[in-house]
Design a protein around this nucleic acid. Structure first.
Length: 736
DNA sequence: CGCCGTACGGTTTTT
DNA sequence: CCGTACGGCG
């Protein structure tokens, strides 16, 4: 029976699956069957050792990975039992225990989760209050510092008075104000989810006893990307049984910027001296050529933990490195090569992936897909939840779930416009603050127009509007008790008048309404598929699961994805675009050797996603952030692997592969005449055509660096200032 | 109070 | 280029 169970696993993998007593550290290279080990291990525990599946906790890095594991296990053991397995991210697990037992540490059970932009808004408000210049202390950087403290489980109380320098002092002050705002709004940010969960297990004897024995077996995937808070949580959860299996690859650690701490791997060995260590180094995914490139690249890192990759898959095709003149040509080359692979080599669209360092790169590639009619999907990057209309509706939902959320109330109090402007709003906030109440408490307590006028000092008009708003909220909140999220969204659209409000926007109103309808559609879908019926469940789900799945699964299309998100995936054909200094490695990481090594690991992750074919592309010229296009230097990562067997694409229409091209990154790029890029000033009075504004007349044209600023009067929209290199103005034939 | 205009700034990666 | 923030006017 066991023989059958282990068939298809190599001895190390078998060892990793069946070592189920005590701590286990699995150090596994890319493509070594990590997920396989985890799924087999869980199945082994359930089917061979008769462990009840609800006593197993498996932690993954993304929800996508969790779903994959669940699905595979369902297929393996075909029992409803597998359904009880708790498998998901640390964050989702924390939400789960906090919703159940958060009250033990005084947490409001209806807490809402704040996302990145909520956090920034709170920081900005804190800066105003503390009179800190947001230019000298950029909110993003303050937020990163605060987040770092939180990941290390440092509260502002602990921190206060310990500042070593002025910046630290500012951080700790902002941290305090920020945290107090979150607390009074009953809101948790992503770091709080972990921090409060740790607090819960540490501070409540009762809870600690329960949870430290609750899970007989603990499994953590992508262990190299856990932070201190997560590590602490692991220690607490595994305290009684110590059956903790962690799987990771130090060379794939790419989230230190999110406070992941690679030292967790060493801590594990220190904290569990009896831990067994298993190495998995055989690669089942890629060809030897691809692995050689990966090994060569990663061996350039000083902190590389040597883990020579090997495979029985054979040498495979050579790597292909090539250059486009511009990022546009880079994209065209990729797309044409994919077309060739599909037509000639019989690959399928969904076997091909294009990876890049920053989301912004996806746009040109997307355009190339559109113009060549190539089916594609973009993973992540879609800022669905950051659209105004979506944020508005979600703010309503958050308030319904947790009326204490002042931030969300502030967002909706005058949306749709109902006559409560900033002066009135400030009066309300001041009044609420001096009386130590939340906004909702204030407006529902003093719920007559007269009271609002007298106590808060509002005008009659504002007080009337506020009274209506207050009643509206109370109605929504009481309605939500026996209604589904979808029904509440419908109420917001119709009864609250959000639809009418959107219809005033003549240009995008319909699109925006459609987005809101999609949000409602998601609520309906989640009710059917995951039985999500309460508002908190719905909001938790939206906050925790970033990718809108179900939208593009099973679709036969190529994949556009950032290198970070590609972790854990594999594709027969992988293209990495933008192999340039400043992009990969990213300019913000180039002056710090530690960050530079992480960039190299990131590239390593990308390379090792490829099964059969790997293409590394760069552009000779690329549009910079400032203006105009700039020539770029080939990435040092190309130089790292330049001695290997490498070919390039032939510059014919079909871009077929040239055999035996010797590669030298420094001679690869060709100087070429600027063709369309030469900019000439346009004479005043010239008639021009713009893609979206239509016809117009040039009023003024002034030089600005390598570029020109053109003032145009359009018949459609009037006067506009445009940057010539970006505007794509076409000179109308009618003018002389 | 609400609308419209202009000025400005911003781009790493994400649970 | 694009979205947001803020100031002035009706």
């Amino acid at each position: 029976m066991n023989d059958q169970f282990f068939s298809g696993l190599n001895p190390e993998q078998q060892d990793a699956v069946s070592t189920t007593d005590g701590p286990l550290l699995v150090l596994a290279g890319p493509g070594s069957g990590k997920t396989r080990v985890i799924t087999h291990r869980i199945s082994y525990l359930i089917s061979q050792l008769s462990i009840d599946s609800q006593n197993i906790l498996a932690v993954t890095f993304t929800n996508r990975a969790a779903n994959e594991i669940k699905e595979r296990i369902n297929n393996m053991i075909m029992s409803r039992d597998a359904f009880n397995l708790r498998c998901g991210t640390f964050h989702s697990f924390c939400v789960y225990i906090l919703r159940q037992h958060g009250n033990f540490i005084g947490l409001n059970q209806n807490f809402v989760i704040y996302d990145d932009s909520d956090q920034l808004q709170v920081i900005n408000e804190s800066l105003k209050e503390l009179q800190i210049d947001h230019k000298r202390f950029p909110p993003r950087s303050l937020l990163a510092s605060i987040s770092k403290h939180k990941s290390n489980l440092l509260s502002y109380e602990v921190l206060s008075g310990a500042s070593k320098n002025f910046y630290d002092e500012i951080v700790s002050r902002v941290y305090e104000s920020y945290q107090k705002t979150l607390n009074s709004n009953s809101a948790l940010d992503f770091d709080d989810l972990l921090m409060k969960a740790v607090q819960l297990l540490q501070n409540s004897q009762e809870i600690q006893e329960y949870y430290s024995g609750r899970y007989e077996h603990l499994m953590i995937d992508e262990f190299q990307d856990t932070n201190i808070a997560q590590y602490t949580l692991m220690r607490l959860l595994g305290k009684k049984h110590e059956n903790i299996c962690v799987v990771g690859d130090p060379n794939q650690s790419i989230y230190s910027w999110r406070n992941a701490d690679i030292r967790n791997i060493f801590s594990f060995q220190n904290d569990y001296p009896n831990a067994k260590v298993i190495h998995l180094s055989q690669n089942y995914r890629s060809t030897q050529n691809i692995l050689d490139a990966a090994s060569k690249l990663i061996s350039t890192n000083d902190t590389n933990i040597i883990n020579k990759l090997w495979t029985n898959n054979g040498i495979g095709e050579s790597l292909i490195i090539d250059e486009g003149y511009s990022e546009k040509e880079e994209a065209e080359k990729i797309i044409h090569e994919i077309e060739r692979l599909v037509k000639v080599e019989k690959y399928k669209w969904d076997q091909c992936a294009i990876m890049y360092r920053v989301n912004a790169q996806s746009r040109v590639i997307e355009e190339a897909c559109l113009s060549n009619k190539i089916p594609y999907k973009i993973v992540g990057g879609i800022k669905f939840y950051s659209r105004k209309e979506i944020r508005d509706v979600i703010s309503y939902l958050k308030v319904v779930a947790n009326p204490d959320d002042d931030l969300s109330i502030g967002r909706i109090i005058n949306v749709p416009t109902r006559g409560i402007g900033s002066t009135s709003y400030n009066k309300i906030v001041d009044f609420a603050q001096t009386n130590n109440k939340t906004i909702y408490q204030t407006i529902s307590e003093y719920n007559s127009i007269e009271e609002l006028q007298e106590l808060i000092g509002l005008t009659r008009r504002a007080a009337t509007s506020l009274n209506i708003f207050s009643n509206l909220l109370q109605q929504l909140i009481s309605d939500s008790k026996d209604r589904t999220p979808a029904e509440i969204i419908e109420k917001i659209i119709v009864d609250v008048g959000y639809q009418t409000f959107l219809q005033q926007d003549e240009t995008n109103g319909l699109d925006r309404l459609e987005n809101v309808m999609e949000l409602k559609g998601l609520a309906i879908q989640l009710k059917e598929t995951e039985e999500i019926t309460s508002m908190t469940e719905y909001l938790d789900r939206i906050a925790l699961v970033s990718d809108i799945d179900g939208l593009d699964t099973n679709e036969n299309s190529i994949t556009l994805i950032t290198l970070h998100q590609s972790k854990g995936l594999e594709f027969p054909v992988v293209f990495i675009a933008g192999m340039e200094e400043g992009l990969l490695p990213h300019i913000r990481s180039m002056d710090d050797p530690v960050q530079l090594e992480e960039e190299r690991r990131l590239c390593y992750v990308g390379i090792t996603r490829a099964e059969k074919l790997l293409y590394l592309l760069r552009a000779y010229k690329r549009y910079g952030f400032g203006q105009g296009s700039q020539t770029s230097i080939p990435s040092r990562f190309l130089t790292d692997i330049s001695e290997l067997n490498i070919q390039s694409l032939e510059k014919t229409n079909s871009y077929s592969i040239t055999p035996k091209t010797v590669f030298d990154p420094n001679t690869l790029h060709e100087e070429r005449e600027d063709t369309a890029q030469v900019l000439d000033p346009i004479e005043i009075g010239t008639k021009v055509i713009h893609k979206s504004f239509g016809e117009g007349i040039v009023l003024l044209c002034t030089e600005s660096g390598n570029d020109f600023v053109v003032d145009v009067h359009f018949s459609s929209t009037g006067k506009k200032k445009l940057l010539m290199s970006l505007a794509n103005l076409e000179i109308s034939k009618k003018s002389k």
